[in-house]
Design a protein around this nucleic acid. Sequence first.
DNA 1: AATACAAGTTGATATATATCAATATTTCTA
DNA 2: TAGAAATATTGATATATATCAACTTGTATT
Lengths: 233, 233
Amino acid sequence: MSEYFDKTSKHCYDCQCMSHLFSFLNKDELQMVDANKIHVRFKAGETIKKQGTYMSHVLSINSGLAKLYLEGIEGRSAILRIVKPSNFIGGPGIYHDQRHHFSITALLDSSVCFIDLQVFKKILSVNSLFAEEFLKDFSRDVLTVYNRLIYLTQKQMPGRMADALLYLHDEIFNQPRFPMILSRFELSELSAMSRESAVKLLRDFQKEGLIRISDHELEVLDIESLRKISQIG
Amino acid sequence: MSEYFDKTSKHCYDCQCMSHLFSFLNKDELQMVDANKIHVRFKAGETIKKQGTYMSHVLSINSGLAKLYLEGIEGRSAILRIVKPSNFIGGPGIYHDQRHHFSITALLDSSVCFIDLQVFKKILSVNSLFAEEFLKDFSRDVLTVYNRLIYLTQKQMPGRMADALLYLHDEIFNQPRFPMILSRFELSELSAMSRESAVKLLRDFQKEGLIRISDHELEVLDIESLRKISQIG
DNA sequence: AATACAAGTTGATATATATCAATATTTCTA
DNA sequence: TAGAAATATTGATATATATCAACTTGTATT
């Protein structure tokens, strides 16, 4: 788990945690970012950004893990994705209404850089290579939401839960054994079902020997079956 | 319905149907777009763009109406939105993998301009005002998908169907009486339910006097009740 | 260590929704 | 215009899923 340690340095020049996006900046531009950034540490459970608030900065996660989610109807949320170190977080608000359209909450102790939005936009408008990379990043996020929309509306619960676990396995931890950073409730918010249904599905998956959960750790035992369940829907 | 007539002229300079995006181009840039565009008419029912294919051009709808939808699991689709004249259609593929990530099918006879993608990207990289407008447009589309994801996963069928009808009323036709451009099946693809459920809900809405359907026309009779149903979920 | 509070678990039940099958209606085509 | 094909409709039924209520376990706090 060394990748989740904080390798942040005081300045952007030699920071190893920054989003790859910023490697497309020249020295002056990086200097400008550095001079106008704010670096803050969050404890697990703390809200990093609240949906609806004014977007004064864009974010880059240096260390830790966070959940990025839409606050929907009557307090219910839909987790869009898990945010990893070096992930850039902008969102559609940058160019729409300068508001955050999702909330972000730390799952582990996390260190976050806040980059001044005006500086960011200024650089975007003059550095077209940077702009292109930003668009690539943004587009990838959008595709994630397309996929989510399909699988949340067209698969039944077992397929959705399998997808949630495979997401953690394939995209976040890249290994069959990983810490259970999400509560059952959060897992249900990731797969659009009730908390109780999430519990029951995990139990079933365990009974069938697909996974093993113990001591805040989840181990994927039979990934092929999990993928099959994901496909069947 | 005059807005759906084709006011396309042969050249972009005096075309009244072009997306507002292109008003941010200078003469040379518009000339470049014009010289590299292709203009095609589609009959209702024809596929304008197929998900997964190579993106050689971006699109602008001059006249008609089309549905933009994600092709999901086992042939099932989710309609993302209805495309109106002067709507620009790019999508996340422009900067991700140069593929179309949704399909588009004409609902009415439609005229469409295909704008060369390389020309488009070239202009984006040099005209930052244009790039900003493009990003605004893209971001608005993304927010639509956020909303869809929430309402499709957190509302029950009556709320989802009410939302679908309100979408047509508020965003596409802007009037209480409009042609039924979508079949019951397509309406079910817009609200993530089975065709039969869609039929039954429309019947219920009619019985309760919320809407009236006759002769390929839908009239919203009681929009307040419809909005209430949308809210309740 | 005792207590309180949050999170997880379970089975029973209610509800929402899909599926099925049969029929009706519309639209298209020869 | 007849026939075929697609679309729409309906009620009955099966299934998926949420809700409820009771209980257990874990975690934090004093």
